[in-house]
């Protein structure tokens, strides 16, 4: 199946390119919007939370921005992934195409937006904290690969479920909202009580590990903790395995559900 996906790479790359272009058609700022949304969120939340938490604006703003970018990438992939087969219906009825292409299309376009934000964040870090160790930034690459595979796998699973059970997207939205508070996007994991239940929850939460994978090298110039790496790897392996098995099972039949 992955070989077929690779064979059709020109197709899904062209689709993703079109999606990105189409999103900003007729808007003056164009792709700049992908930067403005998380930036404005960061600005507002920084103003609010620097007066709640005992942190400096300098430290908190970048921490928050990286969190929002990563969270946005994952949720956008999952929620838009839910509808990706319905959107791809028009192609699926022309010829048999590997299903995984359509969630990939969504992940790619969310990923490009995420990367633009990330590039801005790296520049901001350089400006604020001086030159970062190049090797540390390089450590980000495996983290991004893990994130991309996770997003693709989750998008595939949700797309299959949503095609079969049309209320999947609503359930996913509510679940992600709950998960948002169990993930240290806006609060710092260090600020939680070490003995509290939320602390344990955050420790086991794979999404928290993903954030750690992105933040640790950029903010502290060090490798992420072994626990975070292990949790992230375990989660991405399980998600990818489920996605592959599920895709294999519905590959031929799914078009009849659309």
């Amino acid at each position: 199946m992955l070989r077929e996906v690779w064979q059709l790479r020109h197709f899904w790359l062209a689709l993703a390119k079109h999606d990105i272009k189409d999103r900003y058609r007729r808007s003056v700022l164009g792709i700049g919007w992908s930067l403005i949304k998380p930036a404005v969120m960061t600005l507002i939340l920084t103003v609010v939370f620097t007066s709640v938490f005992d942190v400096s604006v300098r430290e908190y703003a970048i921490f928050l921005f990286l969190g929002i970018l990563t969270w946005q990438f994952l949720t956008e992939s999952i929620l838009q992934g839910c509808n990706s087969f319905r959107l791809g219906n028009t192609y699926l009825r022309v010829r048999p195409i590997p299903l995984a292409i359509f969630p990939l299309r969504v992940v790619l376009s969310a990923g490009i937006h995420g990367l633009i934000g990330l590039a801005a964040a790296v520049l901001a870090i350089w400006y604020l904290h001086g030159t970062a160790d190049f090797l540390v930034v390089l450590a980000l690459l495996p983290a991004l690969a893990i994130l991309a595979i996770t997003a693709w796998s989750l998008a595939c699973i949700c797309a299959i479920l949503n095609t079969r059970y049309s209320d999947t997207q609503q359930i996913a939205e509510i679940s992600l909202q709950a998960l948002f508070y169990a993930t240290p996007v806006i609060y710092m994991p260090e600020s939680l009580h070490k003995t509290g239940w939320l602390h344990t929850l955050v420790e086991c939460n794979p999404f928290a590990s993903f954030l750690e994978l992105v933040r640790r090298p950029l903010l502290h110039e060090e490798m992420p903790g072994a626990t975070s790496i292990l949790i992230a790897l375990a989660f991405v392996s399980v998600a990818a395995a489920i996605a592959l098995v599920a895709l294999h099972r519905v590959e031929k039949r799914l078009v009849l559900w659309l």
Binding site: Q7, F11, L15, H18, D22, R95
Partner: peptide, 21 residues
């Protein structure tokens, strides 16, 4: 089927042809 309405004729030619391999 197999077209993007907001894409130009050229873009659609490429999309459709890539879909055909």
């Amino acid at each position: 089927a197999g077209f993007e309405w907001n894409a130009t004729g050229w873009e659609n030619i490429r999309l459709r042809a890539y879909l055909q391999g």
